[in-house]
Amino acid sequence: MKMIKLFVKVNLLLLAIMLMQALPILAQENPTLSDPEVAHVAVVANQIDISYAEIAKKRSKNKAVLKFAETMANDHNAVIDQAAALAEKLGVTPKDNAVSQQLLADAEKTRKTLEASSRKAFDKTYIDNEVAYHKAVIAAVKGLLIPETENAELKELLQNVMPALETHLKHAEKVQKEFEGK
């Protein structure tokens, strides 16, 4: 009997959620980020999406939303682990910076919006934010973070995560369709 190997070719997804609102920040101010700062932004951006997922898991009753949130939490935790392992290997300590701080400030506003939304409106509010967040992240990683990164391994990690980010976006858009017109 013949054995055929079928690979689940995934791409890291690394910085996944990164740079939500950082895109307009970077576009406006064109800051220069060092590699430790890029690494910090990456970790923060992943943590932010995990925090949104935790809110969704507490507030939503929708099966598709809960499944998506669970996947976001698991995947972004895996990305953080990957980024941490790379930082340790490279001897890099992620460094706080203006972009990370702005991400956190914007995330706090989003958290308040999610927490304040009615139970009926929550699912749509959450998934709309996930779609917008991933679009911003994809644009920022591709157009800003990758060009800013000097270390080859960190750059490769950023490049490898792109297909995963796109998968997250497609997944979010699929769930979003459930709430069209609501």
Binding site: M1, K2, M3, I4, K5, L6, F7, V8, K9, V10, N11, L12, L13, N74, D75, A78, V79, D81, Q82, A164
Partner: peptide
């Protein structure tokens, strides 16, 4: 038999 192998980190 088809073998599926997870080559991703997630």
């Amino acid at each position: 038999t088809v073998r599926f192998v997870n080559k991703d980190l997630v």
